[in-house]
Design a protein around this nucleic acid. Structure first.
Length: 611
RNA sequence: GGAGCCUUAGCUCAAUUGGUUAGAGCGCUGCCCUGUCACGGCAGAGGUUGCGGGUUCGAGCCCCGUAGGCUCCGCCA
């Protein structure tokens, strides 16, 4: 390393820096300081040269002037973006009129007596001061991309979130316990990542989809209150908001009811938002049942930041001449509609798009009425009687400029179709984006709620069996237990709940089954044979016979939570080293082929590659 | 497993109905510039338009195939 030429800094001489780049203020004027960091921008005027020096905390302007120090100024002309440098010099006030109010350090600048180039940067793969659309390039140079202040700040926010989580849960008596990453494959749920065992050839570990069984066994162990910032792994196809490995805040407690879990979760989220955004969020959160959520918003994770609720029109069309609606009702279905305010100006392209969405989710088409110049413009309105029209006007509060969308059919499908249409219209109209004002972060853009009473099981036509909606350890609601005996599985509700923020599911959990007999009945209902129960879940059933306490818990998706806190669109922007759409980590090029010797040791032979 | 969209300079993008030598900004190289903060000015380098085939007098543009990317459906207890 090049020796520092300055000798006048006394006790600070051996340090790389005395301050970070977002620290110096007017009150520091006259101080001798050392700063180290990256050259964010250089503005070379031929004579004077300005450098914005960046570290993870912020920017400080460094000014090289020939009349101050000709040698150092000459050296400074060689600086290029992203060189790593150290400067030693004096804090000076900026010339009157040249202060920069956009920078926290904008009142001052540093006049160096020395410049040490700690490392040069070659030509950059891309520019950090411009947005990039080529995500593969960013991920390949992730260590470089992370120098962007936005991403750096996101990772710092993530740290604050996990710290607040640990501090809060510790204060509530929860104990952080690590559970194995090398664990066992389970039949239900997502596809597992497998890890071959060398010591036990032919056998495989599975990476956990969640620490679910371990945390329940910790309750049997009498730990009473457990939590973990846990990695989880699911080998499913990717989406924009999905990663094969992700992080959960995993919580489980004994002798609790759903209300206890709600209170802990609300307290924890309050602590997190206080720590990460400095705001108080109102608790307790409102609650909706699953049935109400679907009925009113067409989603089990409703975004309530805007209205446009689903309105039931059974009363209107029960005896209608319009057969499409009338027959849907006769067949036990529903007719529902939403009123999109100020959307009568919808374009043909938008109609086509919304119709395509409706068809994707099972509708045959999408009927609508535009209200323009006092006229109802619609292909279907001619089938409506005057009484029906008047009833619609009242129920949907129809006014000039509105656009009404209808769905008819089975309850789940009609609701989901309108729910999706509702979200897309809100997106088009910008109903969800405007909110966070600069400078005044009140948290008024945040809408938390609980969705409760989820169905316990769902019929899978493809597999010809019942599947657990949450997971097979979920406790049925006590009042629905007799439905289990009657095998009315579809009508059973679970003591299960999701916590939703701004239309995003950020967590979910349930009360668990702690009785071995009930658990066996559940497995039976889910089509797990007696042999499989013993082979796959014998440990759990045995554990439940040794005094298992009533227990329940919740898991929150840390990545999504931090994404929302940071106002980001993608969880990749709050992860240090995310994987791309094909599950590749492009920086290290994983996954990769392995040495044949490693395969031999594992007793693995590769099948011929598909051509 | 399925559908839609995309691929032009290092990066972000443009290129009339198919028509001469494929342009711009940023970055890069060289020169100039003493108060900028996205500094400015002058000059320059940089392209097999993802790849393969077809139609045409002529293809970045049209057609077929293929690779890669993005988004969505299925899937994600």
């Amino acid at each position: 390393m090049q020796r520092n030429s300055s000798t006048s800094l006394g006790m600070t001489e051996q340090m790389y820096r005395t301050h970070h780049c977002n620290e110096l203020r007017k009150t520091d004027i006259g101080r001798e300081v050392k700063l180290a960091g990256w050259v964010a921008v250089r503005r070379d005027h031929g004579g004077v040269i300005f450098i914005d020096l960046r570290d993870r905390e912020g920017l400080t302007q460094v000014v090289f002037r020939p009349e101050e120090n000709a040698e150092v100024a000459k050296q400074s002309h060689s600086l290029r973006t992203e060189d790593v440098i150290q400067v030693c010099g004096k804090v000076a006030p900026r010339l009157p009129g040249t202060e920069n109010p956009k920078l926290a350090t904008g009142d001052i600048e540093v006049l160096p007596q020395s410049l040490t180039i700690l490392n040069r940067a070659e030509n950059l793969p891309f520019q950090l001061d411009a947005e990039l659309s080529n995500e593969d390039l960013e991920l390949t140079y992730r260590y470089f991309d992370l120098r962007r202040p936005r991403l750096s700040r996101n990772l710092q926010t993530r740290h604050r979130v996990t710290q607040a989580t640990r501090q809060f849960l510790d204060s509530q008596g929860f104990i952080e316990i690590e559970t194995p990453i090398l664990s066992k494959s389970t039949p239900e749920g997502a596809r597992d990542f497998l890890v071959p065992s060398r010591l036990l050839p032919t056998k495989f570990y599975a990476l956990p989809q969640a620490p679910q069984q371990y945390k329940q066994l910790l309750m049997v162990a009498g730990m009473e209150k457990y939590f973990q910032v846990a990695k989880a792994f699911r080998d499913e196809d990717m989406r924009a908001d999905r990663q094969p490995e992700f992080t959960q805040i995993d919580i489980e407690a004994s002798f609790v009811t759903p209300n206890d879990i709600y209170a802990v979760t609300e307290g924890m989220l309050a602590a997190i938002f206080k720590a990460a955004r400095g705001i108080e969020i109102p608790t307790p959160f409102p609650q909706l049942t699953y049935r109400e959520a679907i009925d009113t918003f067409g989603s089990d994770k409703p975004d309530r930041r805007f209205d446009m609720k689903l309105v039931d029109l059974e009363d209107v069309f029960r005896d209608s001449q319009f057969k499409v609606f009338q027959s849907a009702l006769v067949e036990g279905g529903v007719v529902k509609a939403i009123n999109a305010k100020n959307f009568a100006g919808i374009t043909i392209g938008q109609v086509d798009e919304l119709t395509a969405i409706a068809k994707t989710f099972g509708a045959k088409g999408l009927a609508f009425i535009k209200v323009e110049n006092g006229e109802w413009k619609s292909p279907i309105v001619k089938f409506f009687s005057e009484a029906e029209k008047e009833s619609l006007r009242t129920k949907l509060q129809i006014e000039e400029g509105d656009c009404i969308f209808f769905a008819a059919g089975k309850w789940e499908i009609a609701c989901e179709v309108l729910g999706r249409i509702r979200l897309r219209i809100a997106e088009i109209q910008g109903l969800t984006s405007a909110n966070r004002q600069s400078g005044s972060d009140s948290g008024s853009d945040l809408d938390f709620l609980w969705v409760t009473d989820f169905p316990l099981m769902q019929w899978s036509a493809e597999e010809n069996k019942w599947n657990a909606v949450h997971h097979p350890f979920t406790r049925p609601k006590a009042e629905d237990l007799e439905l289990l005996e009657q095998k009315k599985f579809g009508e059973m509700r679970a003591d299960a709940y999701d916590v939703v923020l701004n239309g995003v599911e950020i967590g979910g959990g349930s009360m668990r089954i702690h009785e071995p007999d009930l658990q066996a009945k559940m497995f039976e209902a889910l089509g797990v044979s007696a042999e499989d129960q013993q082979a796959k879940f014998g440990h759990l059933l045995r554990a439940f016979r040794l005094g298992a306490p009533p227990h329940g818990g919740i898991a929150l998706g840390l990545d999504r939570l931090v994404m929302l806190i940071c106002d980001e669109e993608s969880i990749r922007d709050v992860m240090a080293f995310p994987k791309n759409n094909r599950g590749q980590e492009l920086m290290t090029q994983s996954p990769a082929e392995v040495d044949p010797k490693q395969l031999r040791e594992l007793g693995i032979t590769l099948a011929k590659q598909k051509l």
